[in-house]
Amino acid sequence: MQAFVKTLTGKTITLEVEPSDTIENVKAKIQDKEGIPPDQQRLIFAGKQLEDGRTLSDYNIQKESTLHLVLR
């Protein structure tokens, strides 16, 4: 499924993900596309910070959801 990641600069990245993907996995995909190390990434969805060990389905993130990427 497709999900979108919006950065603070307003850029939107499109990712191909599965509901079973972990947040860690998603961060690795963002690193592949953008070169941002996962340890600098914080992903926010519905106002919550997403934890590495959880999956997209844990957070009820469905296709075409938009996550927000904040860098630390």
Rank of each mutant, 00 (worst) to 15 (best):
Gln2Lys: 14
Leu43Asn: 00
Arg42Gln: 14
Ala46Arg: 14
Thr9Ser: 14
Asp32His: 12
Leu50Arg: 00
Val26Gly: 00
Met1His: 05
Pro38Leu: 13
Asp52Arg: 04
Ala46His: 14
Glu16Val: 12
Lys33Phe: 08
Ile61Val: 09
Gln40Ala: 09
Asp32Ala: 14
Asp39Cys: 10
Glu51Cys: 09
Phe4Met: 06
Ala3Met: 15
Lys27Asp: 00
Leu71Gly: 07
Gly53Cys: 06
Lys63Cys: 07
Ile36Gly: 02
Ile30Lys: 00
Thr9Tyr: 13
Leu67Ile: 13
Gly53Glu: 10
Lys48His: 12
Lys48Leu: 14
Ile13Ala: 01
Ile61Glu: 03
Leu8Ser: 15
Ser65His: 08
Val70Cys: 08
Pro38Ile: 15
Pro38Ala: 15
Glu18Asn: 14
Phe4Pro: 02
Phe45Gln: 03
Ile13Pro: 00
Asn60Tyr: 06
Thr12Asp: 04
Asn25His: 11
Gln41Asp: 01
Lys11Asn: 08
Ile44His: 11
Lys29Trp: 04
Leu67Asn: 01
Leu67Phe: 09
Gln31Arg: 13
Gly10Tyr: 03
Ser65Ile: 09
Glu16Trp: 15
Met1Gly: 04
Ala28Ser: 11
Glu51Leu: 11
Thr12Trp: 11
Leu69Cys: 02
Val17Pro: 01
Ile61Gly: 02
Gln31Ile: 02
Gly47Glu: 05
Lys29Arg: 06
Gln62Asp: 11
Leu15Asn: 00
Asn60Met: 07
Pro37Trp: 06
Val26Asp: 00
Val5Lys: 01
Ile23Ala: 02
Lys11Ala: 09
Pro19Phe: 09
Gln40Met: 12
Ser57Thr: 07
Lys6Met: 12
Leu71Arg: 07
Gln49Tyr: 14
Leu56Met: 05
Leu50Gly: 01
Leu71Gln: 08
Leu71Glu: 08
Glu24Leu: 14
Ile30His: 00
Glu34Asp: 06
Ile44Ala: 06
Lys6Asp: 04
Leu69Pro: 00
Gln31Asn: 10
Leu15Val: 09
Leu8Pro: 15
Asp32Lys: 12
Leu67Trp: 03
Ser57Arg: 13
Leu69Arg: 00
Lys6Thr: 12
Pro19Trp: 09
Ser65Phe: 14
Arg42Lys: 13
Thr7Trp: 11
Asp58Glu: 10
Glu16Ala: 09
Ala28Trp: 11
Leu71Thr: 11
Ile13Asp: 01
Thr12Val: 15
Glu64Lys: 07
Val26Leu: 11
Gln2Ile: 15
Gln62Glu: 12
Glu51His: 09
Ser20Asn: 13
Glu51Trp: 06
Lys63Gly: 14
Gln40Trp: 11
Glu64Trp: 13
Thr66Arg: 06
Thr22Arg: 08
Ser20Glu: 11
Leu43Ile: 10
Gly47Lys: 04
Thr9Val: 07
Lys27Arg: 05
Ser65Cys: 08
Ala46Tyr: 09
Val17Phe: 05
Gln41Ser: 04
Gln41Leu: 06
Pro38Phe: 12
Ile13Phe: 12
Leu43Phe: 03
Thr66Ala: 06
Lys33Val: 13
Thr7Tyr: 13
Gly47Asp: 07
Gly35Glu: 04
Glu18His: 15
Thr9His: 12
Gln2Asn: 11
Arg72Val: 15
Thr14Ile: 14
Ile30Glu: 00
His68Leu: 15
Met1Ile: 10
Glu64Asn: 15
Thr9Gln: 12
Leu8Cys: 14
Lys11Leu: 10
Lys48Met: 14
Leu56Val: 07
Thr14Lys: 09
Ile61Met: 05
Ala3Pro: 02
Leu43Thr: 00
Ser65Gly: 07
Pro19Thr: 07
Glu51Gln: 10
Arg54Ala: 08
Asn25Gln: 14
Gly35Ala: 05
Thr7Leu: 15
Lys27Pro: 00
Glu51Ser: 08
Asp52His: 06
Thr66Trp: 09
Thr66Gln: 07
Asn60Lys: 10
Leu69Phe: 05
